[in-house]
């Protein structure tokens, strides 16, 4: 199997790629992990991981800047319906619109928007940095062997908001309930960083590698 970690000039790709390699190793799966932005390579891959760091706007503009990348991702996700895993801003990009620095269009794969976390009159600090517990809202293969209320590592100031409650797999509590994971058909994402969440995070990546879309 080949998995593409999408490189569009955003942050820490190395950690995601290395954690995927460790995950593949744990389950004795023969996986080729490629870090790439080449549309042709992406089309040939079986699965995609879309990392993301920095602002929604910078990330989306970064993707748009690479010729053919946006199109190949849309084709991969919407037509081929192959599995994609968005991490942090990578997940946020699934939304229709982001409001970080200024209104920016996202992929629009999920009817959602991305807005700044409400700090409840400065009662909570932003960014939301650290280990927080996730609470499952529905069953997901991607969380197989993960206990409810497990800790995951979060680092963000903006949150994914959707009225499509059936897409919400897990939430976390930070002042309000914040979406921690979404899933719609072949599209899966986490607001937290599995590649930074020690054993539990690698477990989720293992599940992603084992994931088959029915």
């Amino acid at each position: 199997m080949s998995v593409a970690v999408i490189d569009y000039g955003s942050g820490n790709l190395k950690s995601a790629a290395k954690a995927l390699e460790a995950a593949a190793n744990n389950i004795n799966k023969n996986c080729k992990i490629v870090v790439t932005s080449d549309p042709k390579t992406i089309r040939q891959c079986d699965k995609i991981v879309l990392p993301g760091q920095g602002s929604f706007r910078d990330c989306y503009l970064g993707i748009k800047k690479i010729p053919g990348l946006n199109e190949s991702l849309n084709e991969f996700v919407l037509e081929k319906k192959k599995p994609i895993f968005g991490i942090c801003v990578g997940m946020q990009l699934f939304a229709k619109t982001g409001y970080e620095s200024q209104e920016t269009q996202g992929f629009g794969w999920i009817d959602a928007e991305v807005r700044k976390i409400n700090n409840i009159n400065k009662k909570i600090k932003l960014p939301h940095i650290g280990w927080n517990q996730i609470e499952f809202k529905k069953d997901s293969f991607l969380f197989s062997n993960i206990k409810n209320k497990s800790h995951m590592y979060f680092i963000h100031s903006y949150e994914f908001m959707t009225k499509k409650k059936d897409c919400v797999v897990a939430t976390t509590d930070y002042g309000n309930s914040i979406i921690a994971s979404v899933n719609k058909e072949n599209i899966f994402g986490t607001q937290f960083h599995p590649e930074k969440s020690q054993k539990n995070g690698v477990l989720i990546l293992q599940n992603f590698l084992n994931w088959e879309i029915s």
């Binding site: 820490n12 190395k14 460790a22 590592y153 930074k196 969440s197 020690q198």
Partner: peptide, 11 residues
């Protein structure tokens, strides 16, 4: 940093 990030999946 590279060597550490290869082995440790933590912040």
């Amino acid at each position: 940093v590279k060597k550490t990030a290869e082995k440790c999946f933590m912040p």
